[in-house]
């Protein structure tokens, strides 16, 4: 009895018995050599699995299934609204990140003038002196407007085509959270230039927060950093706008789209 390991799977003998062409022989030798070291079969199995999954036959769409003769083609552009709002969100994120390089959320005054705050003069610099700054701010603002509009229209489309119905209640609710957060996104961004309109919109926000029963003062403290507007308010709006909301909204959008992916798009029958 020798200590030499027996070759349980005598691939050499098996290859000899096969009567292979030179190409096949080189190929098999290389394959066996690699497989004994890397266990390629396991990965081949994965690839095979993927192949059959991607080559599944598509089911018929509803218009085909119910023989609707494509009468409802005019609905279909409305089905792009969700992806339009996502695209606008991406554009706003990129232009916003670029704007963030030139902006600081501070109500400190500059140059001895009482009203010229750091935030406001930064926005003035972006719009007046920075190369492409006016365009950048314009693009950020317009993509935000377009995103909000697309989100509202998307909600109407979902309502009037009954796409919120039975298996999709959860996504409808996530959608309501998302539309609310979109508006909060817009509101916090509206306050950042610290212009006259920003200030008084912030004033209304504080008053609204204060009129919430029971927890009003606590909410005003948390969100606006006090009962009167100031440095703390602007900084909280800034952190909400560039740090907190991006994470939350991006995550929720991913979940929202993921659920659509899993459940499929509800076409009108």
């Amino acid at each position: 009895m020798s200590l030499e390991r027996k070759d349980d799977y005598d691939h050499g003998a098996w290859m000899e018995s096969k009567d292979l062409s030179p190409i096949e022989e080189v190929y098999l030798t290389a394959l066996i050599w690699l497989d004994r070291r890397l266990r390629i079969v396991d990965y081949l199995e994965l690839l095979e699995d993927m192949y059959y999954k991607t080559n599944l036959q598509m089911p018929k769409s509803h218009t085909e299934q119910y023989n609707l003769d494509n009468k409802f083609w005019y609905w279909y552009p409305l089905y792009a609204l969700g992806s339009f709002s996502t695209i606008a969100y991406v554009v706003a994120a990129i232009s916003g990140a670029l704007l963030g390089f030139y902006y600081a959320p501070s109500t400190q005054t500059v140059g001895g003038e009482t009203l010229r705050t750091v935030a406001y003069s930064n926005v003035l610099f972006i719009m007046g002196d920075l190369n492409f700054g006016l365009f950048l701010r314009s693009l950020h603002r317009w993509s935000a407007q377009v995103m909000t509009a697309a989100v509202f229209l998307h909600m109407l489309r979902v309502y009037f085509t009954g796409a919120y119905k039975e298996p999709r209640e959860l996504n409808w609710i996530i959608g309501i959270v998302l539309i609310s957060l979109t508006m909060v996104f817009g509101y916090t961004g509206y306050l950042l230039p610290w212009s006259q309109l920003s200030y008084w919109a912030g004033q209304i926000g504080v008053e609204m927060a204060l009129s919430i029963p029971l927890i009003g003062e606590w909410v005003a403290q948390l969100v606006f950093g006090g009962f009167t507007l100031g440095e703390a308010t602007l900084q909280r709006m800034y952190i909400l706008h560039v740090f907190l909301l991006p994470f939350v909204v991006t995550g929720l959008i991913a979940v929202h789209i993921g659920i659509v992916w899993m459940q499929g798009i509800a076409e009108p029958h």
Binding site: L115, V123, M127, S138, Q196, L197
Partner: peptide, 9 residues
């Protein structure tokens, strides 16, 4: 392009 109102007062 967007319009920027006067500074907060």
């Amino acid at each position: 392009p967007p319009h920027l109102p006067g500074p907060a007062n």
